[in-house]
Design a protein around this nucleic acid. Structure first.
Lengths: 369, 369
DNA sequence: CTGAAAGCGCTTACAG
DNA sequence: CTGAAAGCGCTTACAG
């Protein structure tokens, strides 16, 4: 065997005594190839450690067998600390891609970069998965550009009306409502909300609206004095909690738009000598791994990241194949721990999990509408 | 503009009134191109939203501008739970790749899969970054195969003598010793070790050896009754702690080979009614985010994942360019929290950090040997 | 400074 | 069932 670089299909052809076209067919399992021929070719290929050059085959077929995951982060967030919620999404997406035989390209983009043309246009990926918490108003126009170019993409985030492209997200309204109802059922009445309740953060806004709706159901009104904006970081949570406390209004519970916010709030409360849950009860959102280690352990709204990853990948793959797909909302689950005080449910396991019906959308497998 | 698919360089050439070769040169910033010509080409390209087809250019140049990150996990680990330590490595590697202008392909491989030919051979990546905790004996032969094929790769893990390829890793001996010395300084004498102390897990073995060396320095001997094997999961940690306790030998401290093991041990101890740190002190390893949220917060040995990511990527990139590189050991830091009891150091901040000198290797920037 | 031409390694109609 | 040939979209000597 010559000690040249990687062998190509012509090398295999010579050694197997067939044409290069036949090598290609044999390797791809083309049905017309004679069985004996195919086996000869495969044997030679294996012996030479031959693999098909992806650049060449992709160029020829005009597809890449690769998906790109683009993660946008709030620029204010510390570079090295990706939101833990995304880790679990990433793990799930990676595995599903592998199962489907696709490679995954990943990139942590800044909103400022000119990403829209990056991957699919240059044929490095067949489609894009967008993940992130940037200001929705800022990047909505980017989504429109992607749609206009015919780029295939799915996005994790709030599922809104009249949205460019396909979004898959949790039912944030149901999740926010569940957290608030849980607190109401435990007798809390002065319930605040920590997190951006604005158009720029539609997921948080929906959680806020769910929270407010639950209060209304109970004949209460969401008190603006008990709400403070926060992005999804511990520090922002701490500052938001301090802001609410400084306003002096009575508060006996805080629904937080994320676990990181809740952890920050927990620290702020404890620093003030307030007891959680005795003085102020707390709920988080996402159920990141840390939630079970805080003291008290955090009651949180869990999103099914495993299923989310599957839906994102499979939806995108179908879109790449030309199918028209629809947005999907996933039902969240309330995970009850100790940060809200005694639950009425008998605490048999360390955490009690309640599945919530999705709000307005069917959460079932492959749900479309 | 015709509504055909993506424009190619010939389309640009026609519209700019130049040859296709000139378009290619202009786009790549070739110095010989006339300034006015280049600007005309760039203007047309921008207008048509043209991007170079990577498959074509990679095929032509025989390189990909892409690195592949292969993560191996212990097959016994739950699929959805990647070791949190790897998350932070992953974040760091991703960012460095982006900074260096490289794309990153990621894959969570099972050891069983035939990965060695996967990425570089088929020209999807110029080099491989290997990350993982599989059994070292099992995959050492794979590393040898990679070396034999001339594949460019770097690996995160124990830096051993006579190792195939280039490894970059923490100074585990120094880390294990630091944890044990800290406990010794606090008056503990019956110090155990939780984690695989075998050739199959060289990082854990080195930590164990550091621990044993520190005991020897203090005139003590590592008691086999106080050691139990564990892979890096909470459950394994719990079981290992239970095993040690069941043996009935007196124990007043446990050095754990990872934070997950320590968290499991913490739960096992507390379930038995033992107080941490009063009855048994505990140290972890890796300083994952959860370590600061346990009660008591976990004293741990921190690895500089940011720097590790930089070194992995930059070393690999140099290897791709033909440079010969050497292994690197990174100095770890002891992060003191509450799980070992009162520290002699005045606890000014919530955590006291001590940088340790690397053991036997220079930890300095770009260190080689 | 620019163009014509070769060629990277495949896949896939088109013949036979 | 198999081969000869075209062509995917680039980059880069080679001329001029």
């Amino acid at each position: 065997m010559p000690i040249k670089g990687k062998p190509n299909s012509l090398d295999i052809a010579h050694l197997a005594g067939v044409s290069q076209a036949t090598v290609s067919r044999a390797l791809r399992g083309h049905p017309a190839v004679n069985r004996a021929t195919r086996e000869r070719v495969l044997a030679v290929a294996r012996q030479l450690n031959y693999t098909v050059d992806k650049n060449a085959s992709n160029l020829r077929t005009q597809q890449s067998g690769t998906l790109a995951l683009l993660l946008f982060e709030d620029p204010t967030v510390d570079d090295s600390n990706i939101n833990p919620f995304f880790h679990s999404m990433l793990g799930s997406i990676t595995r599903v891609c592998a199962q489907r035989g696709y490679d995954l390209l990943i990139s942590f983009q800044q909103l400022s970069r000119d990403w829209h043309a990056d991957y699919e246009d240059c044929h490095k990926a067949d489609g894009l998965i967008l993940l992130g918490y940037g200001d929705y108003r800022e990047y909505r126009s980017r989504l429109e550009a992607l749609v206009a170019q015919g780029t295939h993409f799915v996005r994790w985030g709030a599922v809104l009306e009249d949205q460019p492209g396909i979004s898959i997200g949790g039912d944030n309204h149901a999740g926010g409502a569940a957290a608030a109802r849980h607190l109401l059922a435990l007798g809390r009445r002065r319930i605040g909300f920590l997190g951006h309740a604005s158009q720029g953060a539609p997921e948080f806004l929906e959680r806020y609206q769910g929270y407010a709706a639950a209060l209304r159901e109970a004949g209460l009104v969401a008190d603006p004095l008990l709400q403070a904006d926060a992005i999804s970081t511990e520090q922002a949570g701490r500052e938001a909690a301090e802001l609410v406390l400084e306003r002096g209004a009575r508060v006996d519970a805080l629904v937080c738009a994320s676990d990181l916010i809740a952890i920050g709030a927990l620290r702020a409360l404890q620093a003030r000598g307030l007891r959680v849950p005795d003085d102020v009860a707390l709920t988080g959102y996402d159920d990141i791994p840390m939630a079970q280690f805080t003291t008290p352990a955090l009651t949180s709204v869990q999103q099914d990241t495993k299923r989310a990853g599957e839906l994102l990948v499979d939806t995108l793959l179908k879109m790449v194949q030309g199918e028209a797909m629809a947005p999907i909302k996933l039902a969240p689950q309330l995970v009850v721990r100790q940060s809200c005080g005694v639950s009425q449910a008998p605490a048999r396991s360390p955490a009690t999990v309640t599945t919530l019906p999705a709000h307005g959308r069917r959460p079932s497998r492959g749900a479309r509408h």
